[in-house]
Design a binder for these strands. Structure first.
Length: 637
RNA sequence: GCUGGCGUAGCUCAAUGGUAGAGCGGCUGAUUUGUAAUCAGCAGGUUGCGGGUUCGAGUCCCAUCGCCAGCUCCA
């Protein structure tokens, strides 16, 4: 007999070998199909796994992230089975669950077409209907290698040859067998609703030197309704797409004749950007930053000295001027080094915080370009903080707080990642360790949970990356804080300490919004183009009903402009309904109707974006309301 | 850069290898309008660019530029 305890529940003695499913049932958990796996002492296992020792058990319902992952992983096996039965020559690679679904990589002689997708999906439906059990089987590594060799599954053999363990597990359902750790759902019927969502190429093991495989993407949910809701969310993302809204709202464009990845700002986009830039300058000056500006390109020697030549050359543009090679800046740090060096520095003036809205150019590979979020020329809200080693941590804290305050103003939540030393990097181990610890300590001081991303730091130092989450819960890399001990050394930066000796300052690179282009793109999607009043390029539009009131409308517009409000007047000879529709589609916060009645008693009748109508509001009341709403929101963190 | 898909009017999209069309938008005129599209007329294209196959190419082939979904990379 073994003693089994339900997590946060009763316990019972049972015969050794009882399955997890039976144990859960005996402990009062109804054996319904929403439970897809079990957790034994914290480890996820199949429902039909036999229990042979005292343990604590907990159900894994499909409604939890873990349960969903199990079901999707099983769905990927199912997809692989369908593919193998329809396309006999195809070899299987790997097929995990991912954030929004699952995929499986195949080595197929011909790429899959959308029609193939439909056939595969249909076959999967048939297999679900047959409710085939998933069966776990353990064997030695050697046996497994023999098995997959017989099946001519070379990718599985390659994976097996690198597995250190002696025992491996396989899962079978129907005619399909796969090397897999598990756990899986008990049978294919547990897959509620699924859909194949796309095909694309993917390198074997994510390495571009390896052959390219065909990756099939799909997603699965417990119920049809949840799947529908997910697909609806994808539609919503499409409606919010900044590339579409950017054009429709007259914000920006990319012209292939000008160059891929080169953003051209239209009047409203340029206005929006300058509103954000003004905001940034104020926020930085408030926090003790000094504005600086560096040149767009520097002699190539500078880039050799900084290490960019050795580590970043492939991403840089170069040009020759009177026989001298120049590198167009991909980062702003080098000029800031020179500014620091422009005179002798005392410890009394540290920390120095140099801030620049710096426009950089990076040669990104053509395939990665995307709207505003991935471009070749962009402007960073960049700063370099030079300080004593003792000041590093408090400076990092200052930046973390800065990020928190700014993100709250824009209404973003975010997640934090810590990226450590990559393979291709410069600097001494001791410095990397010191810098990494400083970052970790700051995160701990602020109680910020973080994901560790090993080997993903910049070539000159470790970094904290901030992934902000937009209204649709998508994550975007914007803010980053990077420690750098090497650049001050390479440029021989020093300060005179209290002891009269020269010392080496530490440098922090940091951005808050990151790239203004990317941030704008994210902002457009976050607000679906309906910017709050303080950001809206056009805050209100006056809609005169007849020519008779044009004079009054222009007088009101002048008054509002004097009050620094962003106003337009639509005095075209169109109907009111027409003008409202256009203003509504432009997502202007206030549509202000001006007719004979308003002109007579010197009032306005604003209509809000949400359809709310206000009639006969006195001029100064409206002015005060707009002035109030135009202020940068005050938030407390 | 790689894999696959796709480039037709400003936008969204039509056109069995056989004379390039529609809606919206634009322009002109009429309409002076009270909360999401007033009516009429007109203009708009070397089908991304360059080669080729063919009696004939938007359609087929090659190359190139760009876009889209991913991979790799990344603010």
């Amino acid at each position: 007999m073994i003693h089994i305890t339900l997590k946060d529940g009763p316990a019972q003695d049972m015969a050794s070998g009882v399955t997890a499913a039976q144990a859960l049932k005996d402990l009062g958990m109804a054996g319904d199909r929403r439970v897809v796996a079990a957790q034994i002492d914290g480890e996820a296992v199949d429902l039909n796994a036999p229990l042979t020792r005292d343990c604590t058990i907990a159900p894994i319902p499909v409604g939890t992230p873990q349960g969903l992952e199990v079901m999707r992983h099983s769905a990927s096996h199912l997809m692989a089975e369908a593919v193998r039965s329809l396309f006999p020559g195809v070899k299987i690679a790997i097929g995990p669950a991912i954030e929004a679904g699952f995929y499986y990589d195949f080595d197929a002689p011909e790429p899959f077409t959308p029609e193939d997708l439909a056939r595969i999906e249909e076959r999967m439906g048939q297999l679900v209907a047959r409710d085939l059990p998933y069966e776990r089987q353990e064997m030695s590594r050697g046996e497994a290698i023999r098995l997959f060799r017989e099946l001519n599954e070379i990718y599985k053999v390659e994976l097996l040859e690198e597995i250190p363990q002696d025992r491996v597990s396989l899962y079978r359902q129907g005619d399909f067998v796969d090397l897999c750790r598990g756990p899986h759902i008990p049978s294919t019927g547990y897959i509620g609703a699924f859909k194949l969502t796309g095909v694309s190429g993917a390198y074997w093991r994510g390495d571009e030197r390896n052959p390219m495989l065909q990756r099939l993407y799909g997603t699965a949910f417990p119920t049809r309704e949840e799947l529908e809701r997910h697909l609806e969310l994808l539609q919503e993302a499409k409606r919010r797409d900044h590339r579409r809204l950017g054009r429709e709202l007259g914000l920006f464009m990319v012209d292939e004749e000008a160059g891929a990845g080169m953003v051209i700002y239209l009047p409203k986009g340029a206005l929006l950007r300058s509103i954000i830039e003004d905001f940034e300058r104020r926020e930085h000056l408030k926090r003790g930053y000094q504005m600086v500006m560096g040149p767009q390109m520097l002699k190539v020697d500078m880039w050799q000295r900084s290490g960019h030549w050795d580590n970043y050359r492939d991403h840089m543009y170069f040009c020759e001027v009177e026989g001298q090679m120049y590198g167009v800046k991909p980062m702003n740090c080098v000029a800031h080094m020179l500014i620091y060096k422009s005179r002798v520095r005392s410890y009394r003036e540290l920390p120095l915080r140099f801030f620049e809205l710096g426009t950089v150019l990076r040669h990104e590979r053509s395939g990665v370009l995307h709207g505003l979020t991935r471009v070749r020329q962009f402007t960073q809200d960049d700063a370099h903080i030079l300080c004593t080693p003792e000041q590093v941590e408090s400076e990092i804290l200052g930046v973390l707080d800065f990020v928190a305050e700014v993100m709250a103003i824009f209404g973003f939540e975010y997640e934090v990642e810590l990226a450590t030393r990559p393979e291709k990097s410069i600097g001494a181990d001791a410095e990397w360790e010191l810098a990494t610890n400083a970052l970790i300590n700051a995160l701990k001081t602020r109680n910020l949970p973080y994901h560790l991303c090993e080997g993903e730091g910049a070539f000159y130092g470790p970094k904290i990356d901030i992934k902000l989450k937009d209204a649709l819960q998508r994550r975007w890399q914007c803010a980053t804080i990077q420690c750098d001990f090497t650049l001050p050394e390479r440029f021989d930066l020093t300060y005179i300490g209290p002891d009269g000796q020269r010392h080496r300052p530490v440098m922090l690179h940091r951005v808050i919004l990151g790239s203004l282009e990317r941030f704008l793109g994210v902002l457009v999607e976050h607000y679906a183009g309906a910017f709050p009043v303080w950001l809206a390029p056009v805050q209100l539009i006056l809609l005169p009903i007849t020519d008779r009131v044009h004079g009054y409308a222009r007088e009101v517009a002048r008054m509002l402009l004097e009050a620094d409000l962003r106003v337009e007047v639509d005095d075209r000879p169109e109907t009111l309904r027409y003008k409202i529709r256009e203003a509504q589609l432009q997502k202007i916060p206030y549509m202000v109707i001006v007719g004979d009645r308003e002109a007579a008693d010197r009032t306005l009748s604003p209509r809000l974006r949400d359809g709310t109508e206000i009639k006969g509001m006195p001029l100064d009341e409206f002015l005060n309301r707009l002035k109030e709403e135009s202020r940068v929101p005050v938030v407390s963190c």
